[in-house]
Write a protein that binds this DNA or RNA. Structure first.
Length: 144
DNA sequence: GCCAACGTTGGC
DNA sequence: GCCAACGTTGGC
């Protein structure tokens, strides 16, 4: 089981939106990612892997947990390349639970144990990896 | 294949 | 609104 962190701008797609879809039994296709490092991370995801949902720009905080319900498949919003090959892929996710206390970026940055978190080190990467230790600590900080 | 120019992301 | 970081593009 691996852990991840995925970003979204809440005015485009928020954790509330994801929870609403999950309640309706609709998986969310995490499409629109156009970055190779992020795509490779999604390819590495397994069924049941869990990920933090991070709100970028507005809030700048980890607001909930979701899980992978379908492994990487072609992104239906993406075009094929010149050779007709699929370039962009995505996974499907469902909400698990919100964080009782969202963990802000400022708090993460103020925590020495989280100084290696990819969210901090690779701030522009929209799908990043979280270590077991980082996951456990962030859950604790979030009131879980 | 290198590198400068440019565009985008995201924090502040 | 600005700027830093980084990815992509295009000329050579």
């Amino acid at each position: 089981m691996a852990y991840w962190l995925m970003k979204s701008e809440p005015d485009v797609f928020s954790f509330d939106d994801l929870q609403a879809k999950t309640t309706r039994n609709e998986p969310e296709e995490w499409g629109g990612v156009r970055n190779y490092a992020a795509r490779n991370n999604m390819r590495a995801m397994a069924l049941g892997d869990e990920a933090f949902f991070y709100h970028s720009n507005i809030g700048k905080e980890i607001v909930g947990i979701m899980k992978v319900v379908a492994t990487a498949h072609p992104d239906s919003t993406a075009d094929l390349n010149a050779k007709g090959k699929v370039v962009w892929e995505c996974v499907d996710v469902a909400a698990v639970k919100p964080m009782p206390k969202p963990v802000t970026l400022a708090t993460v940055k103020a925590t020495p144990e989280l100084s290696e978190l990819e969210l901090v080190k690779l701030s522009r990467l929209s799908v990043s990896k979280v270590s077991d230790a980082e996951w456990a600590l962030l859950c604790k900080m979030g009131g879980l």
